[in-house]
């Protein structure tokens, strides 16, 4: 019984991973709201991506009261959702929203994020509609840099 309760408590805390397409991405990129979107493109198999995840998690926690939305866009394969991505999110107790990119035509959605992006991950796009600005990086980012950019974007 105790095991069952503990199990279901843990289950409740594990977030649902939404499967997204290019159109979902476009909604965030073309947002008309004041919310700053921080879209990080990563995968469980990408070691430099996994290394920078704590910076994004810290951002989610420190800016919880601000209009900042961190979305971790996984580029794992769909077939790895249950075997790799879900266990990873659970084990690392990720608090930022995790979504899985399932748009098959990568050439199309990569250009949507940034026309100059080669497709190498990690990559991060910060969309600040209020300031009419966006920032794009095809390199890992530190929390210090993220914080500075988000403060500029708010």
């Amino acid at each position: 019984m105790v095991v069952l309760v503990l199990f279901s408590a843990g289950f409740l805390h594990a977030q649902e991973i939404q499967l997204i397409k290019a159109s979902d991405l476009k909604r965030w990129i073309d947002t008309k709201s004041d919310t700053v979107y921080v879209l990080n493109f990563w995968a469980t198999w990408c070691s430099p991506c996994v290394e920078e995840l704590p910076a994004f998690e810290k951002l989610t926690k420190k800016f919880a009261s601000k209009k900042v939305k961190v979305i971790l866009v996984s580029n794992d394969f769909k077939k790895a959702l249950d075997t790799k991505l879900k266990p990873f999110v659970r084990e690392k107790k990720l608090q930022s929203q995790v979504v899985l990119m399932t748009e098959p035509n990568t050439d199309e959605w990569i250009r949507l994020v940034n026309p100059n992006w080669s497709g190498t991950i990690p990559a991060t796009l910060i969309v600040a509609h209020k300031k009419n600005k966006s920032y794009f990086f095809e390199t890992p980012l530190s929390y210090t840099k993220l914080k500075r950019l988000v403060n500029k974007a708010l």
């Binding site: 493109f41 995968a43 198999w45 990408c46 430099p48 580029n75 990568t106 050439d107 990569i110 250009r111 992006w117 080669s118 497709g119 190498t120 991950i121």
Partner: peptide
């Protein structure tokens, strides 16, 4: 020319 996700 096309873009693609891959391991850096």
């Amino acid at each position: 020319e096309t873009r693609a996700i891959g391991c850096g």
